[in-house]
Design a protein around this nucleic acid. Structure first.
Length: 830
DNA sequence: AGCACGCCGACT
DNA sequence: GTCGGCGTGCTC
């Protein structure tokens, strides 16, 4: 009986985001499984294309004549598991993205299919003798002649891309193809980024080899003799070592192989990511709260209907120890674990603790891993050599055979929401996986997000509280300094008198200080005090951040950089002045106040190089410096025993950010940063500088009153209809041409209104916009936005309509050259 | 993305 | 009347 496969083909075009039916040839019938990667002909040109089998059926909706056949299976085992397919379907619908967007998350880019067109001589020229061919050639025009000559010289290995120098467009090529002057055919290569290492050994025992050479009268050169001698004493030598040690060429070895004296064997090689940060592992005894958290979760591990868990534990409550106990229990039961962290490069200490405890079965996914290393980790997970994977949100899709636990540490962090397609929420996806595959999902944070805490309170999570720090020390006291008063007392510096005094005291007593400021660079912007001219990015709607060491203004969005001149380009005055403070300026001023103190700085500007963050942290840990200045990067995961003072230089900077989540992030940052103080035996102290001493986010934060903050914040969210009470859907339309962007945005609004009116909906208050985005231009692209709340409209109806307009009717509604970005519950609406 | 088809203006 | 540019639409 005929069988048919429903598959998704790899393509960059949104309009091909659908299931296509192919016939399964008989020779593949028993091998082909759902989830397999296959090779299929696609489009009028039958281009060899990668496909992913989603279904296998007995019947086809389409008539047989329209169907093509699958050519081959590309991998021995299906690349996607049945549960992956289910997840892909769910994500595609939830985040309004394509199948391919989701599939791309599931396996590393190393598995690739490249197809290209090969040109040969066409039928009308092929059988001709040399002289006839010459005559035919003379009849052609110049460019045709050149093409045919190139084809003749290339011996059938000519790619169409190589002809671009001759033909301006590929049209000419197609025409020649039709006239049978040339023949176009497809070729493809399937890549698997699996690094193999070649090992060399003698093909027979050393006793026999000399006889063999004599018997068969084999000539062996001196170099080759050396190789054989070496191999007689060392079996299984890596070929590169052999080449290096004996300084011979590969040629010698291949010739020995041809003479059947040595054998080459390819073995898998696993690239080991190196690892720099070192820390002594301290064995900890869990306190009662920690033990009961572990017991609650482990005791339910095999329950079918368990809810996800939320651990709300104060900073320093030893959540990592709890996670490790859970992972160990799972391991004893034969279950694998995924440990998600917000950004892997920021948590070297956590990785180290896991590696110390569990050894080589711990795998790490890095944003800084090479594609090959990532590939190796993926395979190690598949083959069961890695049982615990620690990584950022992408680690969620690792192909574990028996996954038991997903831990999301610091789950309130923004990096858990993807900014690229599919714009998924890690928490939502983890919960989906947990529900479908009976996996225990554990969210942990000292400062849960308001959204998830609301869900916990309404019973969607098992809420576990840990209220005591592991070292039983009280949380560091947070002292507020009113910067308005500092100003009236004549202190214009960034450092209040209190903070200066405390830094001095701390350093003198041999302890360490962490200073936090959420802005890198030297100054916020450069402006002319005479005429008000502001240095702005050419490509973005953003003022340039001043970087002193290079005397430039830099755009933190697109990387644009420009020298700051001595005189104002507008009015020629010399009153150009940098305004606002960044970490670089803090460093400079602090060094001025404390010339004998060593200061380290950590921000995106000096940690982009691999290992540089670890290096700085190691220096700080070893006491080489007394003060560490940093941005968000130092707000979490760091554990330094000697830090007794934390200074938060400007809490307002975050508070005044124009986004509805800015109060929440202020509260979170203050709490997290304060938690860096007094983590070991010594008591910690925090000084928080602000102009707005009365804001509830600040007041609640200094008392570590999360529940109080939550109560304040949730009222506001409810009043304005923000999450968690409503879903918010953002559609950003961008493009280089401002006019077409605006036109498209207005078109979209009108189309939606039209469709909704047809369904009897007349109140459109839930649509905000179209408006220019707060940052109305990024990297030369103008940006307009439409915001939807599912206030009085069913979310699936809304999503259906948006999908219909943005994808199905895309060409009708949107002008050419505009991009559409759809985001469900975006992190920020800028 | 490709590739083909078809409409329209320019040129023999 | 024909050639070639490009806009349009489909891909199992």
């Amino acid at each position: 009986m005929e069988k048919y496969a429903q598959l998704v083909v790899r393509s960059k075009s949104v309009s091909i985001d659908d299931l296509f039916t192919y016939k399964i040839p008989e020779f593949l019938l028993c091998d082909l499984k759902v989830g397999h990667r296959v090779l299929v002909p696609f489009g009028q040109g039958n281009k060899p294309t990668e496909g992913f089998v989603f279904e296998i059926n007995d019947k086809s909706k389409l008539e047989d004549g329209k169907l093509k056949q699958i050519i081959d299976i590309l991998d021995e085992n299906p690349m996607l598991r049945v549960e992956d397919l289910e997840l892909i379907n769910w994500m595609r619908n939830r985040y309004l993205c394509t199948y391919m967007d989701c599939i791309n998350l599931m396996y590393p880019k190393g598995y690739k299919l490249n197809s290209y067109r090969i040109i040969n001589l066409g039928d009308s020229l092929r059988s001709l003798s040399d002289t006839d061919l010459y005559i035919e050639l003379e009849k052609l025009n110049n460019s045709q002649k050149e093409v045919v000559e190139k084809v003749i010289n290339s011996k059938g290995r000519l790619k169409v891309d190589n002809l671009e120098s001759i033909c301006k467009n590929t049209n000419e090529i197609y025409k020649m193809n039709k006239e049978k002057l040339i023949d176009l055919s497809w070729a493809y290569e399937s890549k698997k980024n699996e690094k193999k290492i070649c090992y060399v050994s003698l093909s027979m025992s050393k006793e026999k080899i000399d006889d063999y050479i004599v018997e068969n009268k084999i000539r062996v050169t001196e170099l080759q003799r050396n190789i054989l001698n070496f191999l007689e004493n060392n079996d299984d030598v890596e070929i590169n070592d052999l080449l290096d040690l004996l300084s011979v060429h590969r040629q010698s070895i291949t010739s020995l192989q041809k003479k059947k004296l040595v054998t080459l064997e390819f073995k898998d090689y696993y690239r080991q990511p190196e690892h720099i940060f070192t820390q002594q592992s301290k064995k900890v005894k869990l306190n009662e709260e920690q033990i009961s958290a572990v017991q609650k979760i482990t005791s339910e591990m095999f329950n079918d209907d368990k809810k996800p868990y939320m651990i709300n534990g104060v900073t320093g409550s030893g959540k990592t120890e709890v996670y490790m106990e859970i992972i160990e229990y799972a391991l004893e039961q034969g279950l694998d674990s995924i440990f998600l962290v917000p950004e892997i490069s920021l948590t070297p200490q956590v990785i180290d603790r896991l590696k110390n405890r569990f050894g080589s079965i711990v795998g790490v996914f890095h944003s800084k891993l090479s594609e090959g290393q990532r590939h190796d980790v993926y395979r190690a997970v598949r083959e069961g050599r890695v049982r615990i994977l620690i990584g950022p949100r992408s680690a969620l899709f690792a192909p574990f055979n028996s996954l038991g636990v997903i831990i999301i540490d610091e789950f309130h962090e923004g990096s858990y929401k993807s900014e690229q397609n599919p714009k998924f929420s890690t928490i939502e996806v983890a919960k989906f996986i947990g529900l479908k595959n009976k996996v225990s999902v554990v969210l942990g944070s000292a400062t849960p997000s308001v959204d998830e805490y609301y869900r916990a309170k309404s019973g969607q999570y098992n809420l576990i509280n840990i209220r005591q720090r592991a070292n039983k020390k009280p949380l560091p006291k947070i002292e507020v300094v009113d910067m308005k008063k500092e100003l009236t007392n004549g202190n214009k510096s960034i450092f209040s008198f209190r903070l200066q005094e405390e830094i001095k005291r701390t350093v003198e007593s041999g302890n360490q200080v962490i200073l936090f400021l959420n802005r890198r660079g030297y100054a916020n912007f450069v402006s002319c005090r005479s005429c008000g001219f502001l240095f702005q990015c050419e490509n973005c709607d953003i003022s340039l951040t001043y970087h002193k060491e290079s005397n430039t203004g830099r755009c933190h969005y697109c990387g644009y950089e420009v020298k700051i001149p001595k005189k104002c380009p507008e009015c020629d005055s010399e009153y150009l002045k940098p305004f606002g403070v960044g970490t670089q300026k803090i460093e400079e001023e602090l060094q001025g106040i404390f010339p004998n103190v060593n200061i380290l700085r950590v921000d995106k500007d000096n940690t982009s190089k691999k290992g540089s963050l670890e290096e700085i942290l190691n220096k700080f840990e070893s006491g080489e410096a007394q003060i560490l200045i940093g941005t968000q990067m130092i707000s979490k995961g760091l554990d330094f025993a000697n830090v007794t003072l934390v200074g938060i230089l400007s809490a307002d900077m975050m508070l005044n950010f124009p986004d509805f989540k800015s109060f929440e992030s202020t509260f979170q940052l203050v709490t997290q940063v304060s938690g860096r103080a007094g983590r070991a035996e010594k008591e910690g102290n925090v000084i928080l500088q602000t102009y707005d001493t009365n804001h509830y986010a600040i007041r609640r934060a200094i008392n570590y009153d999360f529940d109080g903050f939550y109560e304040d914040e949730i009222k506001i969210r409810k009043a304005f209809g923000y999450t968690p009470f409503n879903n918010m859907l953002s559609v950003v339309i961008s493009g280089k041409n401002e006019k077409t962007v605006i036109e498209s945005a207005k078109n979209m609004y009108n189309s939606i209104v039209y469709l909704l009116e047809n369904r009897g909906i007349n109140n459109f208050d839930f649509i905000l916009g179209p408006n220019p985005c707060s940052i109305s231009k990024i990297d030369k692209n103008y940006r307009w936005q439409l915001l939807f709340k599912d206030d009085n409209i069913e979310i699936n109806l809304l999503k259906g309509i948006i999908k219909y307009i943005c994808i199905t009717k895309r060409e009708v509604v949107f002008r050419k050259g505009v991009n559409i970005s759809i985001d469900i519950n975006p992190n920020s609406v800028l």
